[in-house]
Design a protein around this nucleic acid. Structure first.
Lengths: 201, 201, 201, 201
DNA sequence: TAGTAACCGAGACGGTACGTCCCGTCTTCTG
DNA sequence: CAGAAGACGGGACGTACCGTCTCGGTTACTA
């Protein structure tokens, strides 16, 4: 019982084309925005037949996600953990401020928003987005919070996962829905309020 | 000499058509999803000329947003404030649990997600979305938190707006990006952690 | 009960587009041949959306046929009958020689062959081809032969339709299948042989 | 130093593949028609790589032509001449009636028409078609007519080749362009008319 | 008898055109 | 003059094949 139209033989896949497609996708989204980026346009800029895209990806969003994941894998290298100076508050403020800066960065904002938006609607893409881009970042918070628990800075009965969301949720809320501007001051306040709730009496 | 490309005369607008367009838009988004809903499809189902839609709305998203706002105005009527039993914690848990239920409701989820996603990308639509649908709800929290401050349940130096986001941000984070399931238990935990940070020493 | 996808409203059809499509189709077939002429190409040269072609014609061949019929309607005007000098033989030789010249004409050959070939395969197109282009010409022969019968130059029991095919069949045979070159001498010989069989003892 | 783009070594050619390609081509044309028959489809049904077709044939039409020639070589065996009972008229009627039946045969019609149509457009293919399929048949007529000339049934100054076309042309005219139905009666009439023109005064 | 050259099945590739769907504009006719 | 209807120029969709190009594998001739 063959599955729909058979899976292509990935061992014969053209690495050259894949890279060209990543590059074309990212540059087009950057230039024209996600909605105006078309598969046809990506293929044309990549110097690739459309079928080569349709053969390997199910949708425009999937192409972009993979391109983005690939990009972030290149970018990240050794940076594998949050700073741990022993002072949880300042460590978190440092990182959240950096996150704020990243979210406000013009270069990454458009494709990142595009993926997030697509994920809001498409559960499958959301899963891939979360697993490949978001979760690795969030894990760093969880680790740092656990270390803070060991140091007695955070109550032992606090679930680090939920605690993390208390910190990150407000930022993502402002960023995604643009209710209010996302600033360093806001990040600091969030840390202040949240930490007070997490610290031992 | 008619002024070309001008705002149409809204006094002569057909109420009948507007309602039909709302209904068609909402039902189509519910049935087929936002992406597969087209202006042509809405016009056809509403028994309306395409131009009638283009005359009054700038985009598909705008139609849906208005339809949704209209819907929520019908739904809401007198319910103008959060409960205030004097016990902030249980009041918040009650309301957040209700929010969780609403977000998990199959009927509203698709169009609501569609609008949120569109807002993630389109700042103008986001503004309308926030102003007409989100902000009125959030204001209720702010009011309740202020009342709690007056009652001494929340520290006076806390910014209610930020406090609210500490409560709502985590929920929206889970819902939008589907990192983890959105449950009553989670809502309760968020309230517990957040409130501890907001309460007086 | 609407019929499949509804017939478009032909009263609102753009005459401008139709003419442009005829022109584009004929010129492209002339330049590149029928096989290399594409609907996309016709639309592009005509400055027309592809849908405008698909709306009104079922196939490339149908477009070309109509264009060709239109052309021939313009070309012909008063020329409504074969010459009738009283001498059947010389009249026929005159006309068949002209036909030979027309079939050997570079300008009309390509599209005419394209239509004939398409008709060989597609009965529906063949019917339209015969009815609109071929039959009117053949009728002239039938008329002339009848007149010859009245004059006693052709036996009365001869079926003019079959007689006509005795004259035209050999020419079309050579032209279509290119068995041998099509010349004035050949036309003359065919008339000689055929007429001897048709004339009274 | 192998000479690039060279004729392949036909001694190593796979007979198995050739046969499979003939069979696949003929069956596909019979089932779906010539236009819907693709090289990819032939290769797939024949269980053969596309390159094996491109290596040995220049076009789809060439494949089909060869397949058809092969088929007719199998079919024909000893039948090498027209009947010669001494009565030219009845001999010709017999053979032309058989030709009518063959042209009206559902099994062979589709591929035969496909080849004829292709030949109308493509001179090269037409040449191959005529040489391999048509001419051998026509030669039989020429031979029979010459024999009739020897017997005094046909005038000596008549060109047998042209005479043949007087007989065959009308049939092919009706068949190719489908002007009118092709029947035994028609064949008889054509023989009657033509023969009268060819016979001695 | 190993080496090697070519055909072979398979199918990925860069392309072109297909026929369809919708876009947003424009035009016509109706109430 | 708003509105229903829908034709129009345009652009992208996702699919089907084109003809070319590797890629192992399997013969069949050479050293």
């Amino acid at each position: 019982m063959a599955n729909k139209g058979q899976a292509p033989d990935s061992t014969r896949r053209s690495e050259r084309s894949r890279r060209a497609i990543y590059d074309a996708a990212l540059s087009l989204v950057g230039e024209a925005g996600y909605a105006k980026t078309t598969i046809e346009g990506i293929a044309a800029r990549a110097g690739v037949g459309k079928q080569t895209i349709y053969r390997w990806w199910p949708s425009k969003a999937a192409v972009l996600l993979e391109a983005f994941v690939d990009l972030s894998h290149q970018a990240v290298q050794g940076e594998v953990s949050l700073p741990d100076t022993g002072d949880l508050e300042s460590d978190l403020k440092l990182v959240l401020r950096a996150t704020v800066d990243e979210l406000n960065d013009d270069a990454t904002e458009a494709p990142y928003r595009a993926l997030a938006a697509e994920g809001v609607i498409d559960p499958e893409l959301a899963a891939a987005f979360v697993q490949n881009l978001l979760e690795p970042q969030l894990k760093l918070y969880v680790d740092r919070l656990r270390s803070a628990q060991d140091a007695g800075e955070v109550r032992a009965d606090v679930d680090p996962r939920t605690a993390l969301e208390l910190l990150v949720g407000p930022l993502s809320h402002r960023w995604l829905l643009r209710t209010l501007p996302l600033t360093h001051a806001y990040a600091d306040t969030v840390v202040d309020y949240a930490l007070r709730g997490l610290a031992p009496r």
